[in-house]
């Protein structure tokens, strides 16, 4: 919608300037995204026309019942999947045209993932787990960067412990450090507190809020729990592959 407005205006320089401002402002720009899965002979419409915009520095929750398409939406947002139709601009770049390697690079440099089940490598230490994204990027000073990321989640003293020696909350904090280590533009968390008790959940959410407020990191999280969603500034409700409602929790002035 923003782009359409641009097109109507004359003057190429002005148009470009405005575009840049708009792009710099938004990390995610979805326009009429659909995703159809081919399951044998049956076509399953997981997303049917999702349009939304997530601004830099925003903290957004996506909520919806099972089968609503929120996981598909997360996969597309995380560049793990590409839409069947529609346009997904990530930092102004059309993701739909990217090939597998380009998508991998975007994930590596720009996106941090946090999963419900932590997904840490069992046999390696916390520090080595945090280092993992750096292995696939340009890796210089990997160990230091990993330790710094662990420090940000308050786990520097556990750097040489293996996941089995850490509590659930600590494991998720290691996963957050792993998501942080490449200084991504976006952190995506899929049910980050789903496997944790309420104390650890609050700890994790505090860290998220801190990262968002202090460091201005854009955060998108999928959750079932309204308690968790209330930590964010906006809730997007998804149902039957569509955005059905949006709830603004905090005003723009409170964001920064």
């Amino acid at each position: 919608m923003v782009r359409q407005a641009h097109h109507e205006r004359p003057g190429k320089k002005l148009l470009n300037d405005l575009k840049e401002i708009a792009l710099a402002d938004s990390v995610i720009e979805l326009e009429n995204i659909t995703r159809v899965y081919q399951m044998g002979d049956i076509q399953v419409q997981a997303l049917s026309g999702v349009s939304t915009l997530i601004k830099r520095g925003e903290m957004v929750a996506i909520m919806g019942p099972s089968g609503s398409g929120k996981s598909t939406l997360m996969n597309i947002l995380g560049c793990l999947d590409t839409p069947t139709s529609g346009s997904y601009l990530f930092e102004g770049k059309e993701i739909g045209k990217f090939n597998d390697d380009q998508l991998a690079e975007v994930r590596n440099r720009k996106i941090g993932f946090i999963f419900q089940s932590f997904n840490l490598l069992r046999r390696t230490t916390a520090a080595a787990n945090v280092e993992l994204p750096l292995v696939y990027g340009n890796g210089r000073g990997r160990r230091e960067r990993a330790l710094k990321a662990l420090e940000r989640v308050g786990l520097a003293h556990r750097a040489n412990h293996k996941p089995s020696e850490l509590s659930g909350g600590e494991q998720q904090r290691v996963a957050i450090a792993r998501a942080l280590v490449n200084n991504p533009s976006l952190i995506l968390a899929d049910e980050p507190t789903g496997n944790l008790d309420s104390r650890s959940s609050n700890e994790i959410m505090d860290i998220f809020c801190q990262l968002n407020k202090k460091d201005g990191i854009t955060l998108v999280l999928v959750t079932h729990e309204r308690d968790v969603a209330l930590f964010t500034q906006r809730i997007i409700f998804v149902k039957d592959g569509k955005v059905v409602n949006e709830e603004i929790l905090k005003t723009g002035s409170e964001i920064r």
Binding site: D101, N119, L132, Y136
Partner: peptide
């Protein structure tokens, strides 16, 4: 399989 999925999610390419 999960490890492979994770590695791909954090940026491993097919070649890696």
């Amino acid at each position: 399989t999960r490890e492979i999925g994770l590695r791909k999610a954090v940026g491993a390419k097919k070649r890696d």
